[in-house]
Structure formats: structure tokens, C-alpha cells
Design a protein around this nucleic acid. Structure first.
Lengths: 206, 206
DNA sequence: GCAAGATACGAGTGATCGCTCGCATTAGTC
DNA sequence: GACTAATGCGAGCGATCACTCGTATCTTGC
């Protein structure tokens, strides 16, 4: 179980790694994880199979690194949205904008992301890699719900957050796939749906 | 391209086919389409690999037959719900119950169904097999939306239906996975979300 | 009861794919 | 410029898997 001796990456190597991940992401998005052969990934990255394995122990490591890259992007986009905002007192529609806009933007500019998350054709261990992200997002939403609807029990707040997250996740593929005009309309509808779901909870401060 | 000569199935054969489909569904649900080997499917069905190919031309044919079986079930469940009901005038909450309850029941009693639909690890041709179902459901929902909110344009009604279908689809996995008590709570939340989304459209009969 | 065909078997075949290995080339360090 | 390590190559190995084939056993129709 000896660690496989660290490697001092050169700038060239870092570039290669990025190229491999780009190639892998686009291939995964096109044909899925299983059908994407490592030789095809290497070919798309413009290198030989041997070179690919210079940088990744195996196929799963590629997916893991890719997953990490996307998780990081999503987390950053989401975290930035919440930084130093009075989430408890903001008008609901502004809050919804704040939560969704960065997420939507990230997914639109990374069209392959959705094809990695939520697909069951990858090793279980890998699917697990995205769970921390999912949990972190849900936790954050739970906190917001709790702050705005304090009369909810912890279980109820968590459930509410789950519903919100699921709805957002579900609308992402059509939003990403749509042309800009229809996309805007779908985003509007998504926000309306979220507001329609959350508004009654906040009014119920009897 | 000669048709591969029809076979006069015996009762035994029909039983075997059903057993194979059961085995395939559970395996697909556990490990995904690609990872489910045909030998493993045969083993789980209690037959030899050779026998499996007595009934199915190839692996994809198994998935296709399975898909057909599930599509039929879903369609029936959905169609039955709408039979001879005044969908245009029914109170919204009753309508939502009418639309969702049969679908939820079917998915709960066929836990593998969701793992087949909406997974991209199967041949494109196969994923296409579930599209007619998806379209049929969306069309039906569009019709209901149009009937209840006539002020919407065709495009708007279709968009609304898309959102409703996506939300329902998204909530199905958590609902299926949950224990009975939490499941009931999630169903309640789902219905609340749908009502919250649809209600404003109906009020807007200015 | 007998032929025809449906069902059953399971070792084996050909193709695919993840990954390796031996070796060549390039970049970094002194 | 010389030494070391990183990067690069691509033919091919070993394992896996969808599927076949020769053969044996049941079921059905007459």
C-alpha cells in the first residue's frame, strides 16, 4: 500500500491534465461514463493512451478529478451568492434570485456538469463524490428555510430544503438545453415555482 | 433483413420471459445497465446464458422489452386517473391528487422503474423508447393546463406542463426511497409545490 | 406414441477495453 | 553540457463480456 511516490508536475503536465479533463467531460457528456473508452479520451485530448496514464492512475481517477473540479465550481458559485447577505429578512423574490442565478449560470457555462451528476452509470464510489456537494447545498438551504420560517421543526425544514433542491436540479437540464429566449422563460417559471412553494411557509407566522 | 421466423411460445416460455425481465429489472436497478452482464441476468433468472438468448435477440432487446413493460404500466396508471373526469372544473387539490396518486403508487411498487428512465447509460435508441411516454404525459398535462387556464398561449401552457412534469419526476426518487411515514410527508410537499405553482395561473382569469 | 419444435444447457469464441511496458524525447537544475 | 526526472509514445496483454453452437430434454398436436 505504499504511496506511489509523488511527482513534481511541470507546467506542461498541468496543462495536459486540464486537457484530459476537458476531453473526458465532453466525451462523458456525449456517450456516458462507461461508453467513453480511455483510448478515446486520450485521442480527444491529443495524446497517447500511455500518456494519459502518466497523469491518472485509472479511468475512475479521471472521473473523480473531473467531479472534484465541477463540485468546486458549483460550491464556489453557490457560496459566493450567500456571502454576507441578510437571508432571513430579504424579500423572497430577491432571495430566490440570489440563490438560483449563480447556479444556473454555472450549469449553463458547464453543460457537461449535469451529465456527471445524477447519473448512475458510474462507480458507486464516484457518485458518492458528489454527495458532499449535494449535502452542503441542502444544508445551506435548510439554514435559510429555518431562518425564514422558524415555526418549522428541524425535520420539516430539512424536508422543505430537499424539495427545493430537487426542483432546482430537475429544471436544470431543460434550462441548459433551451435556447436563450426559452431559457429565460424557464428560469422565470422555476423561480415562480420555488416562490410558490416557499411563500406559504413564511406567511404562516401565526 | 429477413424477419427471424416467429416462434410459437409455450406457457413455459412466457413465464421465462417474465422471469428474465424481473431479473433484469432488479439487476439494472442495482448496478446499472452496462454493468449488468447478460450472464448475471440469466443466473438471477435461474437459467443458462444460452436459454436467455432463446427469448431475446440481444441485451438491448431485454432492456427494450422491460422499457415497454414499464411504459405500459405508467401509461395505464396515468390514463386510468384521467378517465371521464371533469378536469377543467375540478378543485385544484382534487385534480392534483387525481394526477399524482396513481403515478406515485406505480413507482413505489416498481422501484426499478425510475432507474431505467432518465438514465443515460443505455443505448440512445433505448432511451428514446421512453420518450413517447414522456411526451404523452406532457401532452396530457398540457391539455389540462390549457383547459384550466385558457388565457395561456399554447407555448406557455406547454412550458407550464414541462415544469410540472419535471418537478414530479424529480421528487419520485426521494419518495420511492423514503419510509412510509416520510414518504407521505414528501408526497404532501410535492402536491403543495404543484398547487403552489399552478394556483396563480388559475386565479389570473382577469 | 411419435414427430416437430420449443426450451434448456454451458463451455467456448471473438471482440472490446482498461491498462502496461519498454523505450524515446523534452524540460528543469547545476 | 550533463544528469535526472517528467512527459510522450503505441503496440499489445489480460480480463471481461455479449453472444454462439452443438446437443440434450421437454411439450404439443395429431
Amino acid at each position: 500500500m505504499a504511496e506511489p511516490r509523488p511527482v513534481r508536475r511541470q507546467a506542461r503536465g498541468e496543462r495536459r491534465i486540464a486537457e484530459i479533463l476537458d476531453a473526458a467531460l465532453s466525451l462523458f457528456a456525449e456517450v456516458g461514463y462507461e461508453a467513453a473508452t480511455t483510448n478515446a479520451i486520450a485521442a480527444r485530448a491529443g495524446i497517447s493512451p500511455g500518456s494519459l496514464y502518466q497523469f491518472f492512475r485509472n479511468k475512475e481517477a479521471i472521473a473523480q478529478a473531473l467531479s472534484a473540479r465541477l463540485v468546486e465550481g458549483t460550491r464556489d458559485a453557490h457560496a459566493a451568492a450567500f456571502a454576507d447577505r441578510p437571508v432571513a429578512t430579504l424579500p423572497l423574490d430577491e432571495l430566490v434570485d440570489l440563490m438560483l442565478d449563480p447556479l444556473i449560470e454555472f450549469n449553463v457555462s458547464n453543460p457537461g456538469a449535469k451529465s456527471l451528476f445524477g447519473n448512475t452509470d458510474m462507480p458507486a464510489q464516484l457518485a458518492a463524490a458528489t454527495r458532499p456537494l449535494h449535502e452542503a447545498v441542502t444544508r445551506r438551504v435548510t439554514a435559510v428555510v429555518t431562518a425564514r420560517a422558524p415555526h418549522l421543526s428541524a425535520v420539516e425544514a430539512a424536508r422543505t430544503a430537499t424539495v427545493v433542491v430537487q426542483i432546482v436540479k430537475a429544471m436544470m437540464p431543460p434550462i441548459v438545453a433551451a435556447e436563450t429566449e426559452e431559457r429565460a422563460a424557464l428560469v422565470t417559471e422555476l423561480k415562480r415555482a420555488i416562490r410558490g412553494y416557499l411563500a406559504p411557509l413564511e406567511d404562516a407566522t401565526t
